[in-house]
Design a protein around this nucleic acid. Structure first.
Length: 429
RNA sequence: GCCCUGGUGGUGUAGCUCGGCCUAUCAUUCGGGACUGUCACUCCCGAGACUCGGGUUCAAAUCCCGACCAGGGCGCCA
């Protein structure tokens, strides 16, 4: 059907016959001359129909088109200095493949602004916008780069179950699902499973998958279904996996700054300029720095948003690690270090991009940690058993892809970087 | 869940403070028409809206109450 994308047609092809397909992006009817812009994934191309040179039926058809009708145009390429990109197509035949019924829910050319909620309701049309497509092309580039990177480091890609039994890691709420005659839940993270895999000898695994949290939070950086990139690595300590995370971030940033998509989004390279190696700020240092600024965080507590908004300024760089969190602020599976833990968070401005650490691989200590979080070790036997049968020391992390995309694109709402976001009030479309 | 702000044609808005010439503004869109170099084309004609439910009042888009929805903040968040 289609012989060329818009971008593949050049002035040098003067005289050649091509077929372009896409949406009617713009239509200017000057009476005896009609300009029609066709938009496809790669760009736009102008079709020019002079009344005297075009078959009357075709001319009539073009004049009746509406914005966003789907068409294919067979025509002759013409070099033309007055046209965008120095070329236009003189149509021989126009086929209307489908037409818009009724009014469009928003203007995909972006001339009339639309609110995010309106955009998400009509996401299909919203995603026709160049800059919105750029986000998801970039997301694809990022995913590919991350996969390539982790493969190059010897990681094996795995898939853990998303339907799980009751046992939770604590903290977050889970979505219940009916599972035949039993109750089950949607997985909040691959944590327990990727750790269990460390007992198998697969050694280095990663997973890129969606996870679910039933939190009733309603902020611009939270959704109830999110995509997580998780790794777990046997025979490693915290610093080993921090180095991998750091290198991954560096790879992603250097890949992304080269892209057309970034320009499309109007992001300046400087916005993504990060100095490596990243500073490692200890938790206790962090709360001390904040205390000097008058923001008091009680020892053992998580750092509130207000504090995180200040902290990166105090550290002096947008990307940094906070390490050695208190056990009280971390889940049971983290390796204790006295009252502290072998843990880290990767921060980007005030957003927590990733968190991880060395895991507790010692059965007795792990059972104790589960108890101290008020959980019942019996609920975790499927997990704990793996620690009885020869579990090597291991470390890992989880990186929020959606949050990474926010950081890269400068989106101020996480919903913008998710095709069809799921939040407290939205399950459709 | 709490606090703040808001809800007007398909979309984005003006009007709301101080109720009444609101028969509701403008743009875009859609329908009809004129126009041979547009690129936010131009011009003419037409279509299309006050979130819902109560209340106050002679009179409510405008004031009050409630619901629902949205945006932001906080909380919660492996």
């Amino acid at each position: 059907m289609r012989t060329h994308y818009s971008s593949e047609v050049s002035p040098e092809m003067d005289g050649e016959e091509v077929i372009v397909c896409g949406w009617v992006h713009d239509l200017r009817n000057l009476g005896g001359l009609i300009f029609l812009k066709i938009r496809d994934r790669e760009g736009e191309i102008q079709v020019t129909a002079p009344k005297r040179k075009v078959d009357p039926e075709t001319f009539e058809l073009i004049s009746k088109l509406s914005i966003e009708d789907v068409v294919s145009v067979r025509g002759i390429v013409k070099r033309e200095d007055q046209a965008p990109r120095g070329l236009e197509i003189i149509p021989l035949e126009v086929e209307v493949l489908n037409e818009v019924l009724g009014k469009l829910p928003l203007d995909p050319r972006g001339r009339v602004k639309a609110e995010l909620d309106t955009r998400l309701d009509a996401r299909v049309v919203d995603l026709r916008k160049r800059e919105n497509q750029a986000i998801f092309k970039l997301r694809s580039i990022v995913l590919r780069r991350i996969r390539e990177f982790l493969y190059s480091k010897g990681f094996i890609e795995v898939n853990t179950p998303k339907i799980i039994a009751a046992a939770t890691e604590g903290g977050t709420a889970l979505f219940p699902v009916k599972y035949f005659e039993r109750n089950a839940f949607l997985s909040q993270s691959p944590q327990l499973y990727k750790q269990m895999l460390m007992g198998t000898g697969l050694d280095k695994v990663f997973e890129i998958a969606q996870f679910f949290r039933a939190e009733e939070h309603d902020t611009r950086r939270h959704v109830n279904e999110f995509t997580s990139i998780d790794i777990e690595m046997a025979f490693s300590k915290k610093e080993d996996v921090m180095l991998i995370l750091e290198e991954l971030l560096r790879e992603v940033l250097s890949e992304v700054v080269k892209t057309e998509e970034l320009k499309e989004l109007g992001i300046d390279e400087k916005d993504l300029d990060v100095e490596f190696p990243l500073p490692r700020i200890h938790y206790e240092e962090a709360i001390e720095m904040l205390s000097e600024k008058g923001i008091e965080v009680e020892w053992g507590e998580d750092i509130p948003t207000k504090g995180l908004k200040e902290l990166w300024k105090l550290v002096g760089t947008k990307a940094y690690f906070i390490v050695d969190w208190p056990m009280s602020a971390k889940p049971f599976y983290i390796m204790p270090k006295g009252e502290l833990s072998e843990s880290f968070d990767l921060m980007f401005y005030e957003i927590e991009l990733a968190s991880g650490g060395q895991r507790n691989h010692l059965y007795d200590s792990l059972v104790k940690a589960i108890r101290s979080k008020g959980l019942d070790p019996n609920d975790f036997s499927f997990y704990l058993d793996a620690f009885k049968w020869g579990m090597p020391p291991h470390s890992g992390w989880g990186l929020g892809l959606d949050r990474l995309m926010m950081a890269l694109t400068g989106a101020d709402n996480i919903r913008e970087v998710i095709l069809f976001p799921r939040d407290r009030n939205r399950v459709i479309p």
